[in-house]
Write a protein that binds this DNA or RNA. Structure first.
Lengths: 203, 203
DNA sequence: AGAAGGCTAGAACGATCGTTTTAGTCACGT
DNA sequence: ACGTGACTAAAACGATCGTTCTAGCCTTCT
């Protein structure tokens, strides 16, 4: 039998991660104990410590495959071919799609900065800085094409990230509107706010 | 001597609140212990319990005079006289000014939902709902004047609140740009995004 | 002088925290 | 058959948590 699949179709390690994500999102990092996680999985405390070195290691395992890889994914889009505005739209669509994919993980990422070790805190800040820089870079490019209304692209980038990141708090993928519809409205809002113009040549 | 003023010009209770705000903002609610607060004030643990019934009571004392009163302040502006767009701008300026006034308190408010008691959690949600409703109401009014680009004002309200609330995370009042300049750029972004138009008749 | 009460400190209580230790089961290679 | 190593459970460790208890100071009123 496949070693990565057990009887109920989910490895013990994956189950621990899934439950930890739920609990971290509900009660925060400091507000969630190892015993809470063990209890909800039906496993024992030592089981957690068999798969993870400590609590922060479990945290990093959650962030590692999701938020940590976000800057690289966004950079790939930012450096891709295409017309500037269209690429900018693609950048935001990628960003929003990742947000829906890893909604809880990203929410956790933003909410629990204060409870981490100094290394975790630094890594957290670095990721946010990288993402900000990607947007600032794209906005400067658009600005050089005369497409941006204002001078201060950094404020603009913060505004855009506010819209994109806040969406993690309110968007419900089980709602009546499709993610694509919601995202298109958000992107229109941002494009009007940034360029004073609607999306260009997009369907 | 005035009973509310002690030797160093700050009452013990006020000092405890001030330090608690700092620590809650740094390490979160669950991540901050009563002993941490006592230690930084130089006072004892029982001193905290002399002025506050328990930890959550201290939390509520912090939120009580700041975030709790925000919906009422915004509602007052929302119900005031004036031209719709101008009033909408005044609403956001008030919102942003309060955010700068109580930046740490409001940040705490958003970050620590998960660590509160059920009552605290409910009250937290209620406040956020009230603020959302105020913006939805204003947007509907603007919509009835034909000033809104889109149909779904709720998404629009979330986008706006994203911009306004995210600003609590990055804005530094000691920076080179004045709060007014930054806020005007933010409001322009929102107005373009919402109406497709710049501020009207504003200086 | 003496009682009362606001304010403070320090010790103590039971609970819970993250983590470690000990021990057990089971599958598998030799 | 035997040992090895992955996995799991339960108990225990020291530290820290929120909170309470006891007791002391100091001011104010009588």
């Amino acid at each position: 039998m496949d070693a990565s699949i057990d009887g109920n179709g989910e490895g013990a390690r994956d189950q621990l991660i899934r439950v930890a994500i739920d609990l971290f999102a509900e009660n925060g990092y400091a507000g969630t104990s190892i015993r809470d996680i063990a209890k909800r999985t039906g496993k024992s405390v030592s089981n957690v410590y068999h798969y993870f070195q400590n609590k922060e290691d479990l945290w990093l395992a959650i962030i590692g495959k999701t938020v940590n890889e976000l800057p690289e994914k966004l950079r790939k889009v930012a450096l891709s071919e295409g017309e500037p505005v269209e690429r900018f739209v693609r950048l935001m669509k990628t960003h929003l799609a990742e947000g829906v994919n890893f909604q809880q993980e990203t929410k956790i990422f933003f909410i629990n900065e204060g409870s981490l070790s100094p290394q975790g805190r630094t890594s957290n800040r670095r990721i946010q800085k990288e993402i900000l820089d990607i947007y600032v870079g794209q906005l400067r490019l658009l600005q050089s094409h005369g497409l941006i209304r204002t001078k201060n692209v950094k404020i603009l980038a913060f505004n855009i990230l506010g819209v994109l990141n806040w969406h993690l708090r309110w968007f419900n993928n089980e709602g009546e509107l499709s993610a694509e519809d919601v995202h298109n409205e958000m992107i229109d809002f941002i494009l009007y706010g940034s360029c004073g113009l609607p999306r260009d040549g997009m369907k």
